[in-house]
Structure formats: C-alpha cells, structure tokens
Design a protein around this nucleic acid. Structure first.
Length: 395
DNA sequence: ATTCCACAGGAAGCGACGGCCC
DNA sequence: GGGCCGTCGCTTCCTGTGGAAT
C-alpha cells in the first residue's frame, strides 16, 4: 500500500509538465558567459590581469562590494577566459576562505593551494613552515604565473592576522621562476581600512568596486537567465523579485533565489503560471528556511541559548538583558541535564547567533546600574512555534 | 567630581584530539 | 610509541565603558 502510494507520487511528479526550461540557470552554482551591467568592472579586471597572459608581472588586485553584486561571477568568468587564452603559462586557483573550513587558516590555505597544484598535504600534523616549503617548491617547479583568487579574504585577516596577508602579497620577492598575482575578494567595504598600510599598498595595488544592482538592472539579469518555459512568468513577477532584492542591497543572488522559489511553489501547487502571490510565498519560505536551518545546525549550547531567549520572550520580557539571559540559560541547561558554560562563552555564543541573523543586540549603558546588552530574537510569532518544534527534536 | 555597577570584549592559555614523522 | 604540530572549544584574567547615583 505504502509502496503503491510512493509509486503514484513518483509517477505524478514525472508526468507533470515543468514550468522550468532550465532551472540550473537560477542556481548559485551557475556562472553565465555574460554579466549584464558589469562591463566596466570586467574591463578593469581584464586590463589588470592581461599582463599575466603575456608572461609579464601583474599587480595584485582587490575586488570589493556588497554580497550578490557579481564579484565572484566576474572573477570566475575572467579566470576561465585567461586560462583558455594563456594555456599552460597561467594557473588560476580560486579558494573561498570561509567555505567549509577548507582554507580559513594559514596552514589550511597553503595546504589547499598545494593540493590544487597537485600535491596532497595532510589536514593537520605538519609544521606550518613545512607546508610553506612545499608550497614554494611547487611554485618554483611549475615556473608559471599563478593567479590566486581569495574569495572572502576578510576571513583570513580575522583568523591569521595582517602578517600572513603581507607575506602572501610579497611572495614574488622570494620566487625566481614563477610569479603570483593575488586577487582578493571581499564583501566588506571597509576591509582595506583594517589593513596595515604596507599590506594595503601591496594587496590593493588596483581596486575594483562592484556597486549594488538597482531594480532595473536586476530585472534585466532575471530576464536574461531564461530559466522558465515561454509564457509561464506572469505580469509583474520579475519586477517584484527585482524590487524586493533591490531593497536588500541589490543582491542578484537573492533575486534569483526568489524567482526560483516562486517557480517551485507555483509548480508544486499545480499552477500553470508563476504569479506575484508565489513571489510573496517564496519570500516567506526563503526567510523561514534560512532561520530554521540556522537553528537546527546550532550546537547544543547555542540551542540552549535560543531556548532561553524564547522562554524569556514568552514570559513577556521585552528587552532581554545579558544577566537575565545567562540565569535563564543556566536553568535551561539544568532541565536539559547539560553542564552550563561560563558567562564569557555564552556572551561569545550570543555574538555568533547575532552574526547568523537569529537575534539582534544593542549595547546599553544604564549608568549606576552598569552596562548590558538588549537582546531580541529576530523571529516573528508565526515562526517561533515551528522553531520551538525544531529545537525540541534536537535538545 | 567621583564612585560604582554590570557587564563588554580582548588576550592568553589550557586540554583534548587527530594527525604526521622518526 | 613518543614527540611535535594544528585546531577547536572553552576558561581565566584583565582592562575598558559610560551614565546614574552620590
């Protein structure tokens, strides 16, 4: 009976005509061959990196701008074109310094570059100096120009400090047969201000700014992706996705996610077209998924902190203070048979939760009554219940 | 003008763990 | 097997903060 039901659902899904012509075109993994409204930036990057094709020295490059403004897509596009044109003379290596802890420390970054250059380096165990030596040897053996793209380079500054970045940008001084060109990419517009002046002048020899897209530009980008079958997109749908994403610092990724989710919602509901109501539903779904996922992936004590916040919120505490949070957290830990952590660590956890968008905090001075933080959960009443459900499953 | 409170937040260090090399 | 190394999650210690109370 159960098997029959599964087969029926499978058949129904397979037989249903899809609204999508090419869903991949709206995926974050999809890199188009053209980037509308980014001609100026593409041209600046190409001009800066073309000496590498000729075997000449290139300046280091710093690319910055808000998330979803096309920085990574532009660099990926230019990188592949340079590889095509330069053949064996140039190697382009792209590393995200945040993603999956692959390269968020000095050791890991050097190990990852070495791996991409063809030499496996163990995840831990070797002295960092040894990994440096392997990296240098590989560079000299290859006798090529290496274009090293470091996406989210700000993570490296936070974790490794300024010294490592400086060494990396001055690496050519110690190389005889090879050259390295560093391309740093950051979402943080003030990143270069945090750098030591020497590192800043080395890394930011050339800078390219990616401005946020406006609604009209986002509309063009969505229209050009051609992810849907003809006539499926209702009036005002693309405009609405573009307008919503434009409100959120002109994020093209957000616009594409909205359009894709709206299409999926319409398709699952058996509708023949994507309408504005599907975009509204998509926005709610994306916001909720993001929040719910962040809650589910928290470690135990992160969940205990969220439970404490929910408990205080339900008691009607309007402005939750650090002290109240910690005493509630201790009580929650007792209920869960968890050994509670120190106030300093819980303070750190609240900072992490804020970074993930689960809460907002504001430092408040109460004069004689000390200094504290007002903490608020970034969750409306509708999602609170579901998140509580998700928490109870895991605690 | 000074005191005081309740933290904020940086820095250093600890211990466990997994991995490498000899 | 032991010494060395990097990483992680945490604790401990410390100084700084700023406005109400005195």
């Amino acid at each position: 009976m159960r098997q029959l039901l599964i087969s029926e659902i499978l058949e129904e899904c397979l037989s249903k005509a899809s609204l999508f012509h090419d869903k991949e075109a709206l995926s974050s993994r999809f890199y188009p061959n053209e980037l509308p409204h980014r001609e100026e930036q593409l041209s600046a990057i190409i001009r800066s990196l073309t000496p590498a094709i000729k075997g000449e020295g290139t300046n280091n490059l710093f690319i910055y701008g808000q998330p979803g403004t096309g920085k990574t897509a532009a660099m990926t596009l230019v990188g592949s074109k340079i590889m095509e044109r330069a053949g064996d003379n140039v190697v382009v290596i792209s590393i995200n310094c945040r993603m999956g802890k692959v390269a968020d420390t000095e050791y890991r970054l050097l190990a990852e570059i070495s791996r991409q250059l063809g030499r496996e380096v163990p995840a831990t165990g070797l002295p960092t100096q040894e990994v440096y030596s392997i990296f240098f040897r590989l560079l000299e053996e290859k006798s090529k120009t290496l274009i090293l793209i470091l996406d989210e380079i700000d993570v490296l500054l936070d974790k490794c400090g300024d010294g490592f970045l400086y060494n990396l940008t001055r690496i050519n001084e110690t190389l005889s047969d090879s050259r390295v060109c560093i391309v740093g990419i950051s979402n943080n517009l003030l990143f270069s201000d945090y750098l030591d002046p020497r590192t800043k002048s080395s890394l930011c020899e050339e800078k390219v700014l990616f401005q946020p897209y406006d609604a009209a530009q986002l509309r063009d980008i969505l229209s050009e992706r051609a992810a849907f079958c003809e006539g499926v997109i209702g009036q005002g749908v693309i405009e609405k996705c573009a307008a919503l994403a434009a409100q959120e610092h002109g994020d093209a990724r957000r616009a594409m996610n909205l359009l894709r989710a709206a299409g999926e919602i319409a398709e699952n509901a058996g509708h023949q077209a994507v309408m504005e109501i599907h975009v509204d539903a998509a926005k709610r779904k994306l916001d909720f998924d993001c929040l719910s996922n962040a809650v589910k992936t928290q470690p135990k004590h992160g969940k205990a902190v969220i439970m404490s916040l929910i408990s205080l919120k339900e008691k009607g505490v309007d402005k939750i203070q650090t002290g109240d949070l910690y005493s509630t957290y201790q009580r929650v830990c007792k209920q869960l048979s968890l050994e509670h952590l120190t106030p300093r660590r819980v303070y750190g956890i609240t900072g992490e939760l804020e970074m993930q968008g689960l809460m907002t905090t504001k430092v408040v001075n109460k004069g004689r009554y000390g200094r504290t933080r007002h903490i608020e959960l970034s969750v409306n009443d509708e999602t609170l219940g579901t998140i509580k459900g998700a928490l109870s499953e895991y605690c």
